[in-house]
Each structure stands twice: as structure tokens, then as C-alpha cells.
Design a binder for these strands. Structure first.
Lengths: 140, 140
DNA sequence: ATTTTATTGCAAGTCTCTTGCAAAAACAAA
DNA sequence: TTTGTTTTTGCAAGAGACTTGCAATAAAAT
């Protein structure tokens, strides 16, 4: 079960499974969109889960450190979003400029490009962002 | 001459060529790195040009609206950077995680990818970011 | 030179995210 | 199951990037 293995991951780094961490994890599990800290906060408030926005920030950071959650910085959003990794591979996103819906792009076409860049620039390439915006079918 | 044509661009939108706009433009012209607002502010201060940080923000926004400057949001920097367009085509960047140096990647490999994404997601793709980080030759 | 209108600087405000600290909650040990 | 230790939480406050309101100033038009 997910929660048990996560608890072990937390405890192996001297951390504890708490009411708030459970709530954030459960929300991310059932929401199939990357959520921002303030969205997590608002949604949990609505569900009568008592949690502070500060705790949301601390929680997503812990989950990120444990490798359970990925932090996304989408194009010109001015805030980060978080999504559960859950065994999924590295991928990118497109966000609708009108309704804000975010769709996964289940591919990363940058392996060849990375090699080309390393050759041309002599950099050792580490990480990258690639995020798209556009208009979704409903909003066109 | 650059300044004259920029002045015309400004005036055709009811704007004026001012001391501070000249200073920001001149700095961007002679600096071959994308600069953040606070870097522009600090550099001009050093050159004894009296300018407020607020004015820097307003200036880069005007230059962006006129299409003279491109705003960059590099990977996990938490601030925007600005570079002169100067007839250059759309391109991407790689930033050294150690020294912060930014190198242009004189290519955009995403035309084919854009078409694929439109086909798969039914989105109309608008804009995108693609930014890399890594270690430059000197910092490896 | 004078008038009009855009621009500037300052102060204050917004937004996202972080930090300090005492109180509360989780876990461990008895 | 109570006690003790250590982490986590909530609250208040702070940091950093960026924006807005407004009176004073500067650019352009007349």
C-alpha cells in the first residue's frame, strides 16, 4: 500500500507520517492535475482539513526531497506546481492559456538534443525545463 | 541608427524616448548576457546613472511590448531576465549552475514537436520555454 | 516659451515562498 | 499507557520579485 511505503521513506530519514502529510498526499493522489501550494491549501480548507499554508509549503518540499513529488515551473505562471511521481517517467506539460487545464506530454524528446548541446557548448548538461502553453480543444 | 528607429517605435505608440530608457537600452546593447531587473539597476547605479528599480521594471516591460526585448524565465532562477532581440531569431539558453554564465543555444528544435503535440492533444500550441542548466567548461 | 501628456521616483502594496519560535503531535522507551 | 524525546505545526514576521498610486518632473507638441 502506498501510505505504508511512504511512511517508511519518511521514517528512514528521521521524519514522521502526520495528519497533514497524509492529507496532502491523498489530495495529490486523487487529483490528476499538478497543484500549486495555494491550490492544495484551498482544496484542503474546503474539505475541512485544518492545515496552514506554511505547512503545505513545508510538506511539498519534504515530499520533493524524498523523490515522491516533482516540482514544476510552468511557463509564466509565477508559482510552482507539484505532482506525484508515482513511478511515472520524466515528462513535460502544456497548459491552456484560457482555462488553465494542464495536460501531460508523455514524451521527452531531448536526449539527442542534449548530446548536441554538450558537443556544441562543451557544457555538461544537467536539468532542463520544457513547457508549452496554448489553447485546449474546449477553449479554441 | 538603432536609437532613432527605437525612438520612432516608441513615439508611434505615444511614448517618449527618455534618459532612463536610453540608459537601459545602451546597457542591454553592450552586455552580451540576459540581465535581470536588479542587475540592470545595480549596473546603472555603478555607472552613476540615476534610476529607480521601479523604472527598470517599467522600462523592460515597455521594451517587451514594443518587441525589442525578450523576457526569459530560466530554470529555477526565481527572477526574469531580459535580452535585446536585435533581429535575432527565437532561441534557447543554458545556464551554468556554478558561475551563472548563460550561453545561447542557437537553435529551436521544436517545430516538428509542436506539430506532434497539436496532433496528440488537440491543443493549438502557442508559446514554449526550453531552458537548460549544467556545468560550463570552466566549472566542471 | 508654454502647455500637454508621458514618465519618473518614492512609498506602499501584492504575491509567492521562507524562517523563528513556542506549542502540539508523533514516535520511542520504560 | 505514561513519560520523555524529537519532529512538526501554526502563527507571526520576513525576504525577494514585481506592481500600483500619486505628486513631481521631464519630454514633446504648439
Amino acid at each position: 500500500m502506498l501510505e505504508t511505503s511512504i511512511k517508511e521513506g519518511l521514517q528512514s530519514t528521521g521524519r514522521r507520517m502526520t495528519r497533514t502529510r497524509k492529507a496532502v498526499l491523498a489530495l495529490l493522489e486523487r487529483t490528476h492535475q499538478p497543484l500549486s501550494a495555494s491550490e492544495i491549501f484551498a482544496q484542503l480548507q474546503e474539505e475541512q482539513v485544518a492545515i496552514d499554508l506554511v505547512t503545505v509549503y513545508r510538506t511539498v518540499n519534504v515530499l520533493k526531497e524524498l523523490g515522491l513529488v516533482v516540482q514544476l515551473d510552468l511557463y509564466q505562471e509565477g508559482q510552482s506546481r507539484y505532482e506525484l511521481k508515482e513511478g511515472r517517467t520524466h515528462h513535460h506539460h502544456i497548459r491552456c492559456q484560457i482555462c488553465g487545464r494542464i495536460v501531460d506530454l508523455l514524451l521527452c524528446p531531448l536526449k539527442k538534443l542534449t548530446k548536441l548541446i554538450e558537443k556544441r557548448t562543451q557544457f555538461v548538461v544537467g536539468d532542463h525545463t520544457l513547457e508549452f502553453t496554448g489553447f485546449c480543444p474546449k477553449c479554441q
